[in-house]
């Protein structure tokens, strides 16, 4: 099959297949796949930075947590908030945070950048952990899921498992196609150019900083989308969702899947969440399941050492398509 046609149609087929999933009527698996899809958005948003702009952020959980807290704090305490304004407002807060911290962190490069993004995320962690603003270390419950009504009509009922699933799927697909579109545009090509050779981009007249900042803000907004949906799914937020473990986890997803490819990020989210599920399964691993992070840690180290291009890279090496490199920038 032609590689171009494959990459054009395959995502639609995959989305279609996923849409059928709730028909299996398994509460457990519907919830699990919902979580995977949310993580896929999260991973794609980080991939935009790491894989396409060359910015290794180790503080991406900041946006995930910030949007979750925004929902929890903005909505009325015991009634449902409206998604129509809480979602854009939450993403807006993430964009503002990204722009403000971006102005500072983008002054640094390399190791500095990694440390500084981590430190700013950690600053948010302490704000929510140490002050009463967000309920301290216990966090806040979101008693009622947001509503998505048009006038009196309930458009999507988020309390219903499968309706929420479809909404999340729609957001995941929309994020994928939006990012693919953006990355194939002049803007996206500029980002990849910056990743490959920032110095030359500057010499060619590109205001590199502005492009990086735009990418940083977009990644923050999409990371926020994932965090908002996760807060809706789990019904509570606590400082853990801002923690650096969360940032490390999503970075692992991106690399496990194969950075610089959008489908890789989705693949990585799947592989990671399922792996986590399997390793911590007490029925299979008994007492060892309690220490599943040991196996995960070893696995992460192995991926870093022996699978730098991730699962997507592994697939490519089987396919051995010579023009893969040339298409890297546009390929989803």
């Amino acid at each position: 099959m032609n590689h171009g046609a494959l990459s054009r149609w395959l995502p639609w087929v995959v989305v279609g297949l996923f849409a059928l999933f709730p028909l299996l009527e398994s509460t457990f698996y519907t919830q699990l796949v919902t979580k995977v899809l949310i993580m896929a958005i999260f991973a794609m948003s980080l991939d935009l930075l790491v894989g396409y702009t060359g910015l290794v952020s180790f503080g991406h959980a900041a946006y995930f947590g910030l949007a979750g807290y925004a929902l929890a704090l903005m909505g009325p305490k015991y009634e449902a908030a409206s998604l129509w304004w809480t979602l854009p407002a939450s993403l807006g807060i993430c964009v503002v945070f990204a722009l403000v911290t971006g102005l500072l962190v983008l002054r640094t490069r390399g190791i500095y950048f990694i440390m500084v993004t981590l430190a700013f995320a950690q600053m948010l962690f302490f704000i929510f952990h140490d002050t009463k603003l967000g309920g301290g270390s216990d966090g806040i419950y979101i008693y009622a899921k947001p509503t998505m009504n048009l006038g009196e009509t309930v458009l999507v009922n988020l309390e219903k498992l499968d309706q929420f699933y479809w909404l999340v799927l729609a957001f995941t697909a929309a994020s994928f196609f939006l990012l693919r579109r953006i990355l194939g545009s002049s803007f996206g090509r500029t980002l990849v150019g910056i990743k490959v050779n920032e110095h030359r981009m500057r010499a060619l007249g590109f205001p590199v900083f502005r492009y990086q900042l735009a990418s940083f803000a977009l990644a923050g907004a999409l990371g926020g989308l994932a965090g908002y949906l996760a807060a809706v799914q789990f019904g509570f937020v606590n400082p853990e969702i801002l923690s650096w473990h969360q940032s490390g986890m999503v970075l692992m997803m991106v690399i496990l899947g194969g950075m610089g490819t959008l489908h890789g990020a989705v693949l990585g989210a799947f592989a990671f969440v399922l792996l986590q599920e399997v390793l911590s399964n007490q029925a299979w691993f008994g007492v060892a399941a309690k220490h599943w992070q040991l196996a995960m840690g070893i696995l992460i180290m192995l991926v870093a050492l022996y699978l730098p291009q991730g699962l997507a890279g592994l697939m490519n090496s089987f396919r051995r398509k010579p023009q893969v490199e040339a298409e890297e920038g546009a390929d989803g």
């Binding site: 579109r181 194939g184 545009s185 002049s186 803007f187 996206g188």
Partner: peptide, 9 residues
């Protein structure tokens, strides 16, 4: 103007 985000490069 080629910084438009949605049309192919």
């Amino acid at each position: 103007h080629a910084t438009r985000v949605f049309s192919r490069a």
